[in-house]
């Protein structure tokens, strides 16, 4: 699938954003560099780029670096320097830090985003990439020439920012390693989640709730080894009254997850799509305070805030439904297809 289809799907969603941020994540787009982490970085200036690259070279082997190709269009202006690097950790540094390469990369991303002024890593996974900007999503897609990329999974988002100013880094998707989040909503548990997750080395620098959801997903999936279903049971935990009606074993499991990770319960309205290598998960808050629909046809699955976005991509669906609040929809690409 090229990026063309998902760009089209964002057109009827125009009214749901206000031009202050749009973005896409494509999975499977860099097959020739599949074994390398693809860092997408915004730089404010050449000097911030030089400074950051010097740091990168002390820890990473850079096999390719280039500006990300863009198209000059009147709708997108004031772009920063946009670069991408295909990298792999320097073995010597990696072994001295005694962590795996994913943890290593996540620390580098955190460091650049908190320490290096004027540099912001907005994509850091393997064989995937995030593309985002200030603008309407359909324009952002054209700006990045997404029709030229081919992938097995795409997510997209148009922003209507309320809490934070629209800036390039603030657009969705938010990404850490191969996890990306697009999020419709505003979470009321933000500061409880943020102050908890920051205990584990994450730094929320953007004052935006989507960033914290990304780190929660990374923490629970990668560091705690939870499954996607368990992740959903934590962040959109069933009510105690619901838990009490489940089978004894299930009750114990849900009770455990809710008790242990109580600070990672997310309240307030949200519909999120979490992208990861090999698939995605869509989830609504447990009260379903945000709309989200799922459409299916053959081996394709479409998820959107509104049915109209899905109909643009596939007018003839076999099935369309709205998942219940807190009920994760997990889609996995067939093994070997990515």
């Amino acid at each position: 699938m090229t990026g063309e289809k998902i760009m089209q799907s964002m057109v009827p969603m125009h009214e749901r954003s206000n031009g202050l941020g749009g973005g896409f994540a494509g999975y499977g787009i860099y097959p020739e560099y599949r074994d390398f982490f693809a860092l997408h970085i915004f730089f404010n200036s050449e000097s911030s780029r030089t400074e950051c690259e010097t740091y990168l070279r002390t820890t990473l082997e850079i096999v390719r670096s280039e500006t990300i190709p863009t198209r000059t269009i009147p709708e997108i202006t004031d772009e920063p320097l946009i670069w991408r690097y295909f990298v792999t950790p320097l073995r010597s540094v990696l072994s001295s830090m005694q962590v795996d390469e994913r943890e290593f990369m996540s620390r580098i991303v955190m460091r650049i985003n908190t320490v290096y002024k004027g540099a912001y890593v907005f994509s850091s996974g393997k064989n995937m990439g995030v593309f985002k900007a200030v603008g309407y999503p359909e324009d952002v897609g054209r700006f990045y020439r997404l029709e030229e990329y081919e992938g097995y999974c795409w997510t997209a988002h148009g922003r209507y920012p309320t809490n934070t100013p629209g800036w390039w880094g603030g657009a969705h998707p938010f990404a850490l390693l191969d996890y990306t989040i697009v999020h419709n909503g505003e979470i009321s548990s933000y500061d409880a989640n943020r102050r908890y997750i920051e205990m584990f080395g994450y730094k929320c620098t953007l004052q935006t709730d989507t960033e914290v959801i990304t780190y929660i997903a990374d923490y629970l999936l990668r560091k705690q080894g939870l499954t996607l279903e368990e992740l959903a049971n934590v962040i959109a935990a069933p009510f105690w009254s619901t838990i009490s009606r489940r089978e004894a074993d299930e009750q114990q499991r849900l009770r455990y997850l809710r008790t242990v990770f109580s600070s990672l319960l997310i309240t307030g309205p949200f519909s999120i799509v979490l992208g990861f290598e090999g698939g995605l998960m869509a989830l609504n808050d447990r009260l379903k305070l945000r709309s989200m629909v799922v459409g299916e046809k053959e081996d394709m699955v479409y998820i959107a805030s509104e049915e109209s976005a899905i109909r643009v991509m596939e007018p003839e669906l076999e099935r369309i439904y709205a998942p219940a609040g807190g009920e994760p929809v997990i889609v996995r690409v067939k093994e070997g297809a990515y």
Binding site: S188, S189, D191, A192, Y196, L265, T267, G268
Partner: peptide, 16 residues
């Protein structure tokens, strides 16, 4: 009123 439906999402939520 704060848009929170469980007390644990308030714990340490100093932005409130």
């Amino acid at each position: 009123g704060m848009g929170i439906n469980s007390i644990e999402a308030l714990r340490g939520n100093r932005l409130m």
